[in-house]
Simulated assay, not measured.
Amino acid sequence: MVLSTCFVFDIVNDLKKNKFTANESNEITSFLEQAFVRLEAWFQWFNTTQSGKEIGSNYWHGRHSTATRELNPKTLSSGLDDNPHASHPSEDERHLDLRCWMLLAADCMDSIGKLFEMEKTSAEEYGSTAKLLSDFATLNQKHFNQVHGAYFDFGNHTEKVCC
């Protein structure tokens, strides 16, 4: 997800800066126009199926708290099964990696929508999502750990769960 989103973001920025020949620009524009429907479906799938309980929060769904043979239940939908998330899955989790990916994707979709002067409401929706997810006050409130001076996922981690 990140690789394809970064690629699209770079391509749109380079188109705006006229870094391509006219022929290359036409081919890229044609590709983005055709791909937009799929990119939009892809974004909406993540935005609806991986959303969290709180506005602007996301968590990787599909983890099971009943897993007894795993130290940390896998997050197959993320593709990052080695990335440690909360040891005790719940709907209260907030995953920082997914939040960042959704911000980048929303920003890309907003850029493409503006590039092609898409329907105003669609472009505004992506821009609003990007603005919401890029708010540092909310990011700090939801993910910043004062003790460690770093950003973390939020959830029921082993050290916070009493047996």
Rank of each mutant, 00 (worst) to 15 (best):
K142M: 13
F43V: 09
S77C: 12
M1R: 05
F7C: 06
F116I: 04
E125V: 03
L39T: 02
F36C: 05
P73I: 10
L115P: 00
S134H: 01
A35T: 00
L139E: 09
E24V: 06
G155K: 01
M109N: 07
G127E: 08
S57Y: 04
G62I: 03
N13K: 15
I11M: 09
P73S: 08
F154Y: 15
L39S: 07
C100W: 15
T68N: 12
H143A: 03
S78L: 10
Q50C: 02
E27V: 11
L32G: 12
N72T: 12
W42M: 12
T68D: 12
Q141G: 04
L80Q: 14
D110M: 12
T5P: 03
R38V: 00
K120M: 05
G62H: 06
S128F: 04
G113T: 05
G155M: 02
W42S: 14
T75L: 06
F7L: 09
N156R: 02
Q146A: 14
T75S: 15
S134V: 00
N18M: 10
S25A: 15
E117H: 02
F20V: 04
R99F: 13
V37L: 01
K131P: 03
G79I: 13
L132Y: 08
T129E: 09
I112N: 05
E54V: 12
E124I: 05
E91L: 09
Q146C: 10
E93N: 02
S57H: 07
S25W: 12
S77I: 13
K114G: 01
I28R: 03
C6V: 13
Q141Y: 13
S4E: 14
A150G: 00
A41K: 11
N26L: 07
Q50V: 01
G149P: 05
R69L: 10
N145D: 15
V12W: 11
D92Q: 09
T66A: 08
K53C: 10
D81Q: 13
R94Q: 14
W45V: 03
F31D: 01
I28C: 06
V8S: 09
H85M: 07
A150E: 06
C6E: 11
N156T: 00
E125S: 11
E40I: 01
Q141R: 15
T48K: 01
E91V: 08
T29K: 14
G149A: 05
P89F: 08
Q34Y: 00
E117N: 03
W60E: 14
S78Q: 10
Y151Q: 02
A22F: 07
L39W: 13
F136I: 08
F36W: 14
E33N: 10
G52D: 08
G62A: 04
W101L: 11
V37F: 00
D14N: 12
E40K: 13
A123S: 15
L39M: 14
F152A: 02
E117Y: 02
N47R: 01
L132H: 09
A150H: 04
